[in-house]
Design a protein around this nucleic acid. Sequence first.
DNA 1: GGAGAATAATATAATAATTGAATAAAGAAA
DNA 2: TTTCTTTATTCAATTATTATATTATTCTCC
Lengths: 88, 88
Amino acid sequence: MKYDIDQTCKILKALSHPDRLKIVIGLYHDECNVSSCQKKMGLPQSTISQHLKTIKEAGICVSMRKGNQVCYKVVNEFAIEVIKIIEG
Amino acid sequence: MKYDIDQTCKILKALSHPDRLKIVIGLYHDECNVSSCQKKMGLPQSTISQHLKTIKEAGICVSMRKGNQVCYKVVNEFAIEVIKIIEG
DNA sequence: GGAGAATAATATAATAATTGAATAAAGAAA
DNA sequence: TTTCTTTATTCAATTATTATATTATTCTCC
């Protein structure tokens, strides 16, 4: 096994919600902040923020504060491989 | 997108439970019936059977009756690609 | 019919999703 | 420095879904 089963399941679970999967795919192409995700997705800010928290806790992305914004970036290798499969 | 987001999420969700992921990886290498899964996993028959139902409903595998047993087989292309990534 | 195998039904506990409201943090401006 | 604006997070409450065991039923072969 290249990847640990339990750790992998956490990532799969985080990716298994359509809104979160769309957010992660979006972040993979354009690192961005909460409100630009919000505009893309058309969901309340708190909902986006909670999804980002889930994504971050799964280790899929990291966040960096830049002034009054927080920029999110996908860093997990396994998640990136899954995104590549989905995009074909 | 090679794969549909909503359909993909159903598969990811089904794979996101450690026991189910182990079952699917096992089935990918050795198609087998409920009781041989049960012996491998050490879980009650009904639990295995319910996991297999979830896996089947997500479209990951199909089942074929062979006498008084039912043989499960992984058929979903996306799921197979994910397994290959996990195994490295 | 009886044994073994699979599925269905039910119940309960645990976990996840959703979102308005409150809070915090940074920057700009009075 | 105090206040306002923008951006983001956390809280809290509700609702929905999932996990699992137990029990009962169905199916297939002998």
